[in-house]
């Protein structure tokens, strides 16, 4: 970590103050309010957002935000676990079996070529407006991210490593258990921060389609009712949750993979 000069720290503070001050004052100017999007009805005000944030987390309406954030978080996590497990197993299987690879890989490639978010309406049509759709979206997104990394990990294993093990008397099962799975798992872990971030995005987009719970549903309701403050609060909550999840996944990855050369230096 580089040490920063006072200029940088002062600059950072200045940027924050200027941004907040501009956001708080500009929408109050009548001309701007009438002519541009700088209208509290569109962008709210920092003071309103802070008050609402307090109200919905610890204040009089406590629980409101927690319930919705919890619904999104739960769906993202369940989807993440299932998707990661499926992606990992599939990645291993396809790396091991030539037949399975030849048969299935082109189809997985074809599906992965389409940005998964575009398929959310189809998932909603099939699984309905509830939690199932959210989880299904999250599973679908996570699957591809983890699949490709596990597959790469299991295929990138040096031939010499497996043949040495075989020479030392390792059975197929031994090699699988002690060499291929850990190596491939390391690659899968490396994909987890990205995967969990995508899972949350998938869940929120799925909630855009008329789900009764979740941050995505409050975002859409706020948009439809023109409540900019609620919209800002839910976006903020989502941002905090997203960076928290990704940060945790990074931490877990570093913990679990401390034996990998990439992490040894740090």
């Amino acid at each position: 970590m580089r040490r920063h000069s006072t200029l940088v720290h002062a600059g950072r503070l200045l940027v924050l103050v200027v941004l907040l001050a501009a956001w708080e004052t500009l929408p109050r100017v009548p001309v701007l309010r009438a002519r541009t999007f700088l209208d509290p009805n569109f962008v709210s005000l920092p003071s309103l957002v802070a008050a609402r944030l307090w109200q919905t987390t610890f204040g009089s309406k406590a629980g409101y935000l927690w319930v919705h954030a919890g619904a999104s978080l739960g769906a993202a996590l369940v989807g993440f676990v299932c998707g990661a497990a499926a992606g990992f197993v599939m990645g291993l299987a396809l790396a091991q079996s030539t037949v399975a690879r030849g048969l299935l890989k082109p189809f997985i490639d074809a599906f992965s070529a389409v940005p998964p978010i575009l398929l959310v309406p189809l998932i909603t049509l099939v699984f309905g407006l509830g939690t199932t759709s959210k989880i299904a979206t999250s599973v679908y997104i996570v699957f591809f991210v983890v699949f490709y990394n596990s597959y790469k990990g299991a295929s990138a294993l040096p031939e010499s490593m497996t043949s040495s093990c075989r020479l030392l008397g390792g059975s197929r099962w031994d090699i699988m258990k002690t060499v291929i799975v850990p190596s491939s798992a390391a690659w899968a872990f490396a994909a987890f921060p990205t995967a969990i971030g995508y899972a949350l995005i998938g869940v929120v987009v799925a909630e855009f389609f008329g789900s009764p719970t979740g941050l995505g549903s409050i975002i859409i309701t706020s948009m439809n009712t023109g409540s900019a403050t609620d919209l800002m609060v839910s976006i903020l909550a989502l941002a905090v949750m997203g960076s928290g999840l990704v940060g945790l996944a990074r931490l877990a990855e570093q913990r679990l993979l401390h034996w990998r050369p990439e992490y040894r230096a740090a």
């Binding site: 971030g197 949350l200 995005i201 948009m223 023109g226 919209l231 800002m232 976006i235 997203g242």
Partner: peptide, 13 residues
């Protein structure tokens, strides 16, 4: 860190 897709409703508003 912000999921940009979440900003879609804001922009539309």
């Amino acid at each position: 860190a912000l999921p940009r897709v979440a900003l879609v409703p804001l922009i539309i508003m």
